[in-house]
């Protein structure tokens, strides 16, 4: 008798396991649970037969029934949790969002290529210990010319058509006045970069009356032309990539001596010759030279003790070469279809 009852309890386990797997909803599961574990369920039915057992046999049936109940409770709760999860999942799936719709972005603006290139140039010199100095756009004749060894009526003034505001005031034609202002303010050693807006009375396809320049200079004891070549070589490699050839050739600036014009191998044709480089294979990008002793005298430095070099470059020109911009005037037309490319 006892064995029969225990066998039927064992059979319930298998029966329930199968039934639970069939249950597709929590209600169905509850029905199965009641069928097995409810007051009138199958387990209760077996326990009702306890009366027919002996005193020794009764605890054994109780033990077996409890074990079966625990087992059943466990599979019901497991299945219950599974069904709840599936339901939640289903609900979430119905909350579908189309993520192929565009994102809600903050519109991004762009920096002017002159700003970007100016920043790049500055960054190339910062590791060499250069700091940035500024000066006014409206300059005096002294800072723009006289102190830079360009006396009144000197033919070199013709190299730079000047906008005048009065007899003595003008729009700076280069950022070189910052050289003078800085040297007046501080003593060597100096490694200075002066970016800024400059003006020349010239307007055609290749000239705008306003453009941007970066001037740099170094003053110390024992500064040499060889070091000038070193600094500018580093700079050109930073901006245009390692391996770009450069050459120095003699030129003339009143505030440097010896003076040099610096060409880089044409970045358009790689030196083969093209329209941009006028078939020479070279592009002029920098003016440079050793600071003229007259400039040192103008600021009270002793040219027998100190030497230095200075260099200057046009930002738009470098931007044109870097980005392949063909028309200088585009820099000042402010068409957003141009601006937003940078």
């Amino acid at each position: 008798m006892l064995n029969d009852l225990i066998d039927s309890l064992t059979a319930f386990k298998h029966e329930a396991e199968e039934a639970v797997l069939q249950a597709g909803s929590e209600q169905e599961l509850e029905g199965i649970r009641v069928a097995f574990l409810g007051k009138k369920g199958k387990v209760s039915d077996v326990l009702k037969k306890v009366g027919s057992l002996t005193n020794e046999e009764r605890p054994r049936l109780g033990q077996s029934a409890n074990e079966t109940k625990r087992f059943l409770e466990e599979i019901f709760s497991k299945r219950g949790a599974h069904l709840a999860l599936t339901l939640k999942e289903k609900k979430l799936q119905s909350e579908r969002v189309d993520l192929t719709l565009p994102g809600r972005r903050i519109p991004t603006g762009s920096l002017h290529p002159v700003t970007t290139v100016c920043e790049e140039i500055t960054k190339a010199f910062i590791p060499l210990g250069f700091t940035v100095e500024e000066g006014p756009d409206i300059e005096t004749d002294f800072y723009n010319f006289e102190a830079l060894n360009i006396p009144k009526d000197h033919p070199a003034r013709e190299m730079q058509d000047t906008f005048y505001l009065s007899e003595n005031f003008l729009l700076r034609t280069h950022t070189s006045p910052v050289q003078i202002r800085t040297m007046e303010k501080y003593s060597p050693p100096l490694r200075v970069l002066a970016p800024g807006t400059v003006y020349r009375c010239d307007s055609d396809v290749t000239h705008t009356p306003m453009f941007h320049q970066v001037e740099g200079f170094v003053v110390d004891k024992k500064v040499t032309f060889a070091q000038l070549k070193g600094v500018l070589t580093t700079f050109v490699e930073t901006i245009f990539g390692a391996g770009v050839q450069l050459r120095f050739r003699p030129s003339f600036f009143p505030f440097t001596e010896p003076s040099a014009e610096v060409d880089i191998q044409c970045v358009i044709c790689g030196g083969e010759g093209c329209r941009v480089c006028k078939s020479t294979g070279w592009l002029e990008i920098l003016g440079a030279g050793m600071i003229d002793p007259e400039v040192f005298k103008a600021v009270g430095y002793d040219p027998d003790v100190y030497s230095g070099f200075a260099f200057g470059m046009g930002v738009e020109r470098i931007a044109m070469l870097k980005y392949g911009i063909k028309d200088l005037r585009m820099f000042f037309e402010n068409d957003v279809r141009f601006l937003e490319q940078f």
Binding site: G109, S110, L111, H112, V114, T115, D137, F163, L171, T197, Y199, T208, P209, M210, F331, F332, N334, V336, L339, E340
Partner: peptide, 8 residues
């Protein structure tokens, strides 16, 4: 977008 105009 940054623009640049002449100072005059």
């Amino acid at each position: 977008d940054e623009v640049v105009n002449y100072s005059f």
